[in-house]
């Protein structure tokens, strides 16, 4: 059970004259894993960025609540964890240095035991002092999960979370996500069947392309 909720009200995004999606509504107020699917260019990453506050919608609103109080945009980063292939960590630092600086900049205690546990879980413990630039893309992807989980976020936003991961890495991610879904809201944007299988409900973005769609479609969140 989570005391966090994220609600979308009539979200619309337009790039130039191109409509990406229109009138998306949802309200996730219980912990669990939720999915966003759609073909390439349907706006999965854009929707994830809008939920995280990185991008603004063309119209509509996203409301984040914690303990029934609205979270102001300046504080939102304290509540969310984010993983995506286009997220970059500092190549010139080691994994340990990266995570240490992130803790300090967030002004949360650097819990060495927790970091070591996460590094061990994601099979990076023996490489924690190596510079990130020496990591493979799969290792960088696993480090991004540690970056997303280290401050115990209430909302985890995952865009193509298993890209660059091998079978062992994917299994590790799924088991950790299932564990986290007991206390956090997890939103996954992906086309991978195995990623979407763990989701309890799904937003299919191809249903939101109609510019005249002013009434929420029946069963817009389906599984």
């Amino acid at each position: 059970m989570s005391n966090y909720s994220v609600e979308a009200i009539a979200l619309n995004k337009v790039f130039g004259r191109r409509l990406i999606f229109n009138n998306i509504n949802f309200n996730f107020n219980n912990s669990g894993i939720f999915g966003i699917s759609g073909p390439n260019g349907s706006g999965k990453s854009t929707l994830i960025k809008i939920i995280s506050g990185l991008t603004s919608p063309s119209s509509g609103r996203i409301i984040h609540n914690y303990n029934e109080k609205s979270i102001i945009p300046e504080k939102l980063h304290n509540y969310i964890g984010f993983v995506s292939p286009y997220l970059m960590l500092y190549d010139e630092f080691s994994a340990w240095e990266n995570l240490n600086y992130f803790s300090k900049i967030r002004n949360v205690p650097f819990d060495k035991d927790k970091i070591n546990y996460l590094l061990d879980s994601f099979l990076l413990l023996n490489r924690k002092d190596d510079l990130v630039k020496t990591y493979s893309s799969g290792m960088k992807q696993r480090l991004k999960f540690i970056f997303a989980l280290m401050h115990s976020p209430h909302l985890l936003l995952l865009d193509e979370p298993t890209s660059n991961l091998d079978a062992e890495g994917k299994e590790k991610v799924y088991s950790i996500l299932k564990k986290e879904s007991g206390t956090s809201i997890i939103i996954i944007a992906s086309n991978e069947e195995s990623d979407l299988e763990i989701c309890s409900s799904l937003i299919q973005l191809e249903k939101y392309k109609n510019p005249y769609n002013s009434v929420p479609a029946a069963g817009e969140i389906t599984k």
């Binding site: 995280s52 990185l54 300046e74 504080k75 980063h77 969310i80 984010f82 286009y86 997220l87 970059m88 960590l89 500092y90 992130f102 900049i105 967030r106 970056f147």
Partner: peptide, 9 residues
């Protein structure tokens, strides 16, 4: 983006 995710403007 990493900075946007860890700190306020």
């Amino acid at each position: 983006m990493t900075l946007q995710l860890i700190a306020s403007p």
